[in-house]
Nucleic acid binder design. Sequence first.
DNA 1: GCTTGACCCTGGAGCGGCTACAGGGTGTGC
DNA 2: GCACACCCTGTAGCCGCTCCAGGGTCAAGC
Lengths: 176, 176
Amino acid sequence: METTLRIGELGQATGVDVETIRYYEKSGLLPTPVRSQNGYRAYGPAHLERLAFIRHCRALDISLADIKRLLGFVEHPDADCGDINLMIDAQLARVQARLKSMQALERQLTVLRKRCDANHAAGECGILHELVAAAHGESCACHHNIPHESSTASAVRGPFTDGYTTLATLPASLKS
Amino acid sequence: METTLRIGELGQATGVDVETIRYYEKSGLLPTPVRSQNGYRAYGPAHLERLAFIRHCRALDISLADIKRLLGFVEHPDADCGDINLMIDAQLARVQARLKSMQALERQLTVLRKRCDANHAAGECGILHELVAAAHGESCACHHNIPHESSTASAVRGPFTDGYTTLATLPASLKS
DNA sequence: GCTTGACCCTGGAGCGGCTACAGGGTGTGC
DNA sequence: GCACACCCTGTAGCCGCTCCAGGGTCAAGC
């Protein structure tokens, strides 16, 4: 008996999308399986275990590059694990930094949302006013009193970590 | 006197990278400016204001598509602003969902981190053990007692919202 | 035997929001 | 006359998928 799985079965078993499995293979995270006569990928228990490991790590939002390194540790259990600690520490730090700036973001959006209670014309919408005023560099409801959250990592990915300089600091020749 | 800015100056004034400004122009967020004789882009106060608006919105992690819609409202102040509210509500909901799952993530990573205190060989590293065991479907320190955080949005972007089924649910023929 | 439909294959493009080139032109100071 | 900072266009790359076109394979039902 040959206990092998086709890609769809492996996907079902691990909860990983078929396309994603192929992507992992292409990226070198999952070793290329043997093929059955019809050319289909045939996976064994080792693949199953490895893919489940990858999935668990991804659920912890560990990057594919770091997962690759972790898999290296799994394969070389005599290596020093200090780097694992560093990796998890870094991961934790990233998550905490993002968390912090997302919390700030939430507060800002909440404040902003309160500016408009009902349906107006856009010209009278407090939210829109607020956004425009903020862009002008006037002190805005969302971004004025949070001096120290500024220097942490940005909420998600962009370059616009908060606490930025506004148009208030502009050459006077250009203001309005 | 012509109060125009070159792209680098506009970038400085608003805190937006030059490449990003060109990207915004290409994406239709920033209108194409006039060119001076040498072919350089020449920006006026309107561009400055608009770019500052965009930047402020990005700091609130509002997507470029939504910013485009907001700019539409700015230009048509007689339109109904109900959609603005909906947009900000949706944005807030997204942020809150992410926040929640990031908090879960942080707890999980913190627990995981505690599994390894000092330098061992990787084979004895509690973190690695934990990750492997979790992949096997054994109840893991990080993912076992959080039944209701599961169905919220995932922490960042991936398909692996937490609380997934593990290998415990597998065809017996393939286990171990 | 034929069709239907579920599954599999490869290769490539697209998402968002930038970021980083290569390969060129322009303008200012020494 | 040269260095250097700035500008231009166009294209490719980043991450982690996700989707698609265009084809092959295989079991079930008629």
